[in-house]
């Protein structure tokens, strides 16, 4: 995926979010660190261009909730959102760059439950690489990519990498 395509895809995702929510009322966007944090700001910008109203944006870091890191029996204390928005009674859209096994989103769902009572949670993802291990789905999807287990999907964004690009590399080529 190149720059133009990414721009268009993000626009379409912004449209879909507004459509699925039936407007911008009671909408809150939450980006998952680190790439989701950039994407969520862009989506919020697009929504503002479309509707004149920018939805509130929160950023979460789910690293302490990841199940693939040994916790040593400790329960993670709820970590506050970095940009706090109230999620009570809102349609919360979780935004991330890639969905794969579904574990990140599951952890994010747990965190949302601790931060409040959203009315509904939607998931918006730029790239779905399939091979889910949990019954989680992306409601708003940029692009499906079929890649092997040994391959890696890299989402590069202007904000962090100086360029908008999605590439697939062999795992050993990891940058």
């Amino acid at each position: 995926m190149q720059s133009d395509e990414i721009q268009r895809t993000i626009s379409r995702m912004a449209h879909e979010i507004v459509e699925k929510n039936g407007g911008t009322a009671n909408l809150a966007l939450v980006g998952i660190r680190s790439k989701g944090a950039h994407l969520v700001r862009r989506i919020a910008g697009k929504i503002k261009n479309l509707n004149g109203v920018a939805p509130p944006v929160g950023i979460i870091d789910i690293t302490p909730y990841r199940d693939d890191i040994e916790k040593g029996g400790k329960i993670a204390e709820p970590r506050p959102m970095e940009v706090p928005v109230s999620v009570d009674d809102k349609t919360v859209v979780l935004v991330d760059d890639v969905i794969y096994r579904g574990r990140t989103i599951r952890a994010a769902l747990d965190l949302m439950g601790q931060l409040g009572k959203p009315r509904r949670i939607l998931v918006a993802i730029l790239v779905d690489r399939g091979e889910r291990e949990l019954p989680i789905k992306a409601d708003i999807l940029g692009k499906n990519v079929r890649v092997g287990d040994s391959q890696r999907v890299n989402v590069l964004l202007q904000e962090s990498d100086g360029v908008d690009q999605v590439t697939v590399t062999e795992d050993w080529q990891r940058k």
Binding site: L109, R120, L134, P135, K137
Partner: peptide, 24 residues
Amino acid sequence: GRPQSVRLAVLVDRGHREMPVKPN
């Protein structure tokens, strides 16, 4: 604990999802 995978089986899916889950 950390399962290898979780799959979901339901007898009836009646729609109206508010959470991003999908039965297998």
